[in-house]
Design a protein around this nucleic acid. Structure first.
Lengths: 245, 245
DNA sequence: CGATGACTTGACTTCGCTCAAAGACAGTGG
DNA sequence: CCACTGTCTTTGAGCGAAGTCAAGTCATCG
């Protein structure tokens, strides 16, 4: 390590020797590949979690609600978003089976979570979970890895938002959705969310999402089997468009 | 919980009943306030970490390098970024004292990290750390909280990038930098990075950053004590501009 | 069968990016 | 001590792309 590089703060700027005091953010760890929950872990978690069924359109919790539990998705799809000024919102993530949600700060949920489809979820009280994690370091490591993975996803999201063109963003989004929810059908991607949801995730107006999809369609890269199912025709071009944006 | 809401997928779109298979992302946990390392934790970590000093401009590691350790910053500032196509890059985070970095995937670092200033860092081999975390669940919980915090920061970053106007983005950025590196001087913010660094973080051209700062300056909201030190004149307006973008 | 909500499409307008040139320092070497 | 050089920064002009808005279509639901 420690290769040379163009000076960090040269020219006009003083080298700014040490400056700067403590902080708290992170960039982060990994420690191991994608750890899956073991059968025993699942059994343990089952003892402290309750299973719930909710209808499509339900709000699981709102940003600002007291956070007493975290949740895991058994089946279905949900959307996690943050309300912004001028009643806009930023969609932070789409959630599918095995995803965990319930990010909190200061005892309050940070994001609002909506069910996009009928959902089965597992509710795990925070304090029980904490006790269990402290008694079971292996299980805790699994959670650490899961959060780390969420961090990587969030970073991909930040990159996604920054992509130049709308078409590029949508292309990337399609490949992400395909990875997130494995093959319901080969070469086909389910979109259980509205164009506005997608737009709020990609930082695009809903009309822009439509336009980008139309663009991809005209180029023969995808076809629309109804508004909520996309068929990928040319995977190579799709990733090409995604990358060069 | 479970309030009603406008139907998730109504109108033309079929309710898309359950669909969707396993995945791995997360939204996430918190479990506790910002846990600080205890004196004993620090002592323990000291036994497996080595202290390094690096010059400004040094590359600590590149994206793709084998990841054998994670790092913690003792003092100084660094930037973590990801190279993109067309030799652009996306800055993922600016790192200051007490921040951890070294996010990896599949045994490779995900981001490149550059020293912006002279740096003292602590190198912690991954496998030693893993062993220690498994033996010390309390310490591991601290790490879990740190990663969770990093996740929150990354989500803020995603929101930041999506902010409408350049001026709004820069305003938000200034308040973030102020929080990240506590008061070197009241109402003053140090910027140990170049305009291009800031732009690559905010998804703005360097010229756009300058323009936005000039804008804030003309409005009397900030003044520039040299290019690398900003003085905040009107905190109320600053946050107002940040929010309404 | 009418109403609602989602999606699509097109025209207009504006905002921000691209590009280029000038200005300002810090460090260097004479 | 001073001029030089390279880098970073600032500023301005022109242009293109993308967001806004509104109208039209379609499917589903009551």
């Amino acid at each position: 390590m420690a290769k040379t590089a163009k000076a960090g703060a040269s020219g006009r700027s003083k080298p700014v020797d040490k400056v700067l005091l403590p902080s708290a953010a992170i960039d982060t760890t990994d420690l191991l590949g994608p750890r899956r929950l073991t059968a025993r872990d699942r059994a343990n978690l089952a003892t402290i979690s309750t299973r719930l069924r909710v209808r499509a359109g339900t709000t699981i919790f709102d940003r600002g609600d007291p956070s007493t539990a975290i949740y895991s998705i058994g089946s279905g799809a949900a959307v996690s978003f943050r309300p912004l000024a001028r009643n806009a919102r930023r969609v932070m993530a789409f959630l599918f089976a095995d995803d965990i949600f319930g990010l909190a700060r200061g005892g309050r949920y940070v994001n609002t979570v909506h069910a996009l489809t009928p959902l089965t979820i597992f509710r795990i009280p925070t304090d029980s979970l904490k006790t269990m994690l402290l008694r079971n370091p292996e299980l805790q490591l699994t959670f650490l890895c899961k959060v780390t993975h969420a961090l990587r996803e969030s970073q991909r999201h930040a990159i996604l938002i920054g992509s130049e063109t709308p078409t590029s963003r949508v292309s990337r989004f399609l490949t992400m959705m395909e990875q997130a929810q494995p093959n319901p059908d080969q070469d086909t991607v389910a979109l259980p969310m509205t164009r506005k949801d997608i737009g709020d995730y990609l930082n695009l107006p809903a009309a822009g999402v439509s336009a980008a999809l139309a663009d991809l369609s005209k180029r023969g890269i995808v076809t629309l089997d109804g508004p909520n199912r996309i068929r990928i025709r040319d995977r190579r071009q799709l990733t090409a468009v995604a990358d060069e944006g």
